[in-house]
């Protein structure tokens, strides 16, 4: 299945792929330093407060927390779509000052373009990101092969001519994943990508994502409220508190890869999920108490 023809990635003048990216001690690839975010100015609604994160290159990180804890705001901050109110963010050693140029992103809503067949949907980033944008026309065949290989990897090889609305939600989400990876991003941001799928499809796609990640080892930040999903996929899990969100715990997941659905029933996996669950339950309770105290 994983028949990635040796894509001439080295020939592409894109950033180097994450082979042995950062050993322990290397400078983190993504770094958040005391980051806060308030919507509507410093006095406004506080979504995120004093958040510190350090993510090494090539790591798979999951961020979990109760709903409304600013997980999605975190995504927008790291990709530079929103400026932080306080603190600083750096990606790849450079301070984030505007939208990053080469991040892959995927959301719960697949947002494929309904007027394009699948293959052309997947190739959309190539029409925008440099240097692919200028090379696309002259090296069409090479890019087409790359897109087809990627579709093949996620099991959509036969569907490249289909329009998105002809496919199931799970298939659309696979294509969405392909679209976020086609330009070999160094950083992949996933915001509840499998949230709208049924349990079986979701578990299937965990496997697909893990496979692609193990193949390519990009840095990945996954925002989710599904603790099993986080434990299945991530190397590191950050647990966030209720609004205003901040990191309250960090768990290293040292389960061997590739993980399978069976490994989600192993005691270590179950224990980990259980621990995180009780942490989140605790912060939720505290938030409720605080709200009550405020109200009375």
């Amino acid at each position: 299945m994983l028949a990635f023809s040796p894509t001439p990635a080295s020939a592409l003048p894109s950033a180097p792929q994450g082979d042995a990216g950062g050993g322990p001690g290397a400078a983190p690839f993504v770094k958040l330093d005391g980051v806060s975010l308030s919507y509507g100015g410093p006095e406004g609604l506080k979504a995120l407060s004093n958040t510190h994160m350090a993510i090494e290159k090539g790591r798979f990180v999951a961020v979990v927390g109760p709903s409304g804890c600013g997980k999605s705001s975190l995504m927008k901050l790291v990709t530079g779509l929103l400026p932080p109110t306080e603190g600083s963010i750096s990606v790849g050693g450079a301070k984030v000052a505007g939208p990053l140029k080469i991040v892959g992103m995927a959301f719960q809503n697949p947002t494929l373009l309904p007027w394009r067949p699948l293959l052309s949907n997947v190739m959309l980033p190539l029409e925008i990101v440099q240097p692919h944008r200028t090379r696309l026309r002259a090296h069409k065949a090479e890019y087409l092969r790359k897109a087809r290989d990627l579709l093949e990897t996620v099991g959509l090889g036969e569907f490249e001519d289909k329009f998105p609305w002809m496919l199931s939600g799970g298939m659309q989400q696979r294509a969405n994943l392909c679209r976020s990876l086609i330009h070999d991003p160094d950083l992949l941001m996933l915001d509840e990508p499998f949230g709208a799928l049924d349990a079986f499809t979701r578990e299937e796609l965990w496997g697909v994502l893990q496979e692609v990640w193990m193949e390519r080892r990009f840095t990945c930040i996954l925002v989710t409220h599904d603790l099993r999903e986080a434990a299945f996929l991530a190397d590191t899990i950050y647990v966030m508190s209720a609004r205003p969100g901040t990191i309250i715990a960090k768990h290293e997941v040292d389960l061997p890869r590739p993980r399978t659905v069976d490994s989600t029933f192993e005691p270590r996996f179950v224990d980990l999920v259980h621990t995180i669950r009780s942490q989140i339950a605790q912060v939720r309770n505290e938030a409720k108490q605080a709200a009550k105290a405020k109200a009375s």
């Binding site: 990709t79 779509l81 939208p99 990053l100 080469i102 959301f107 373009l113 990101v129 330009h183 941001m189």
Partner: peptide, 13 residues
């Protein structure tokens, strides 16, 4: 869709 706009902006569109 705002998400789609985010996806494109984070590609440098």
């Amino acid at each position: 869709e705002p998400e789609l706009e985010d996806v494109l902006r984070s590609l440098g569109a």
